[in-house]
């Protein structure tokens, strides 16, 4: 099983630091993951796995700054760990992938985190602070999520039609 971590078009140091920890690798290994793919954006400087940890735990790691095929990486993953960007969230939900969104507690009142928090209330994804990520993974917060409804933009077409027929 593989896990895809993405920070989107900018960077997210706290998330990449959390992903670089032995605790997270242990949590992933305990849940049967053996492949970790990390898109670290501009946070490459803080990415670094503890020596030998990944070989000890039998996890292969791939990491890069940006990708031109984010949807494909999501489709190939069994779990997505993402920043709170709307684009990354929708990619994972529409691919029916279990999703943990890591929100920055300092930016909790920032409207960027609001979508993640609202969607977590609906049970579509799990939310964790960077420091809670490893524990959230080992508890398996991603195992009991609800499928997200398919997108249906047709009402917008209907509204335009109604308005132009007036």
């Amino acid at each position: 099983m593989s896990v895809y971590v993405t920070v989107g078009s900018t960077g997210f140091e706290e998330l990449i630091e959390a992903v670089s920890s032995r605790e997270l690798l242990q949590a992933l290994a305990s849940r049967g993951f053996w492949r970790l793919i990390v898109q670290y954006g501009s946070s490459g400087e803080v990415f670094g796995l503890p020596d030998t940890a990944s070989t000890e735990l039998g996890i292969t790691v791939e990491a890069f700054d940006y990708t031109s095929r984010p949807q494909q990486l999501v489709d190939q993953a069994d779990l997505v760990i993402s920043h709170a960007g709307a684009g990354s969230i929708l990619e994972a939900l529409h691919s029916n992938k279990p999703l943990i969104v890591v929100v920055n507690k300092r930016l909790m009142n920032n409207h960027q985190s609001e979508i993640a928090i609202e969607l977590a209330k609906g049970g579509y994804l799990a939310v964790a602070a960077p420091a809670e990520l490893a524990e959230a993974v080992s508890r398996g917060v991603f195992t009991k999520l609800s499928p997200y409804p398919h997108a249906d933009p047709r009402p917008i077409g209907e509204i335009i039609d109604e308005e132009t027929l007036l």
Binding site: A86, L90, H111, Q112, E114, I115, I117, I156, I159, E163
Partner: peptide, 9 residues
């Protein structure tokens, strides 16, 4: 027709 961004909750 204005559709507010999905990001505005």
């Amino acid at each position: 027709v204005y559709v507010e961004s999905f990001a505005r909750v």
